[in-house]
Design a protein around this nucleic acid. Structure first.
Lengths: 133, 133
DNA sequence: GTCTTAACTTGACTCGTTCCAGATAAGAGC
DNA sequence: GCTCTTATCTGGAACGAGTCAAGTTAAGAC
């Protein structure tokens, strides 16, 4: 149950957060705006700030993941822990999941990393979605 | 020469653009702010808008590439055409180039692309730079 | 030297996000 | 159940990055 996931993550169970987590499950890759809209339909008036706070709390608790393709506002998804990747449509911004062949981070390692210690490889595929083709 | 590259790209040769292209060569992955600063030192007073316009023109002409790691303002570089990738420091945002084994786009192809036509795979390695370790 | 128009300036404005101070309510402990 | 702590929420101001628009300047074709 949604409430249990919140409790298990050490978060308080509130109307806004329940609605947000459900919205997040229902529409992956939604923007903060989309999510705030969904939350307000489900839970009545909720401040935008509360949505931002909750999303940050979810990410910190490992319940959600923050994705941010270039030129797009932040998007969130509850599919965490499998280090999958994304395809983004250049035309409309639609985003879809792409499974990672490796599954665990960093999944790819550069041969020459300039002294950086790499812990994650984030792959974003750019292209055109079926509808925009 | 810098002026020839502008001319070859079909762009007019102006003080701001010469200075910008030089700044871009000198400091890859610089932000618009950094670049505007460098341009003003080299070419006197130049509006921020002119820098944005010129950068957009450079990108459109293939002289520069636009990079935008999550949570960071836009960065630009003149290394174009070899589809290389980047390592970004989570702590300080420092960015370095990482050669792409394949070299040409899309360089990686997802096995399941959800109907998207993929033309580029952008890889961002996240980690910690030598100085922040 | 003229003339067209790319390039520049100035300034207002949007968007996504963050910061703050104070009010509210979840849930631990009695 | 009642209290109390503090996580969470509210409202509103503020911010950085970037865009838009109208008018001026100057590069370079002729």
């Amino acid at each position: 149950m949604t409430a249990d996931r919140l409790r298990a993550a050490g978060l308080r169970v509130t109307r806004p957060r329940l609605a947000l987590l459900d919205a997040l499950d229902a529409s992956p890759h939604a923007t903060v705006d989309d999510l705030a809209g969904a939350v307000r339909i489900a839970a009545g008036s909720v401040s935008t700030q509360a949505v931002y706070d909750a999303l940050e709390a979810f990410v910190a608790a490992g319940l959600a993941r923050h994705v941010e393709p270039a030129g797009s506002p932040a998007r969130f998804e509850t599919r965490v822990g499998d280090n999958h990747h994304h395809v983004v449509c250049r035309a409309c911004g639609a985003t879809a999941d792409v499974d990672c062949a490796v599954g665990r981070r960093p999944c790819l390692t550069p041969k020459e990393s300039n002294g950086f210690v790499v812990d994650e490889a984030e792959v974003t595929y750019w292209g055109t979605c079926p509808r925009c083709q």
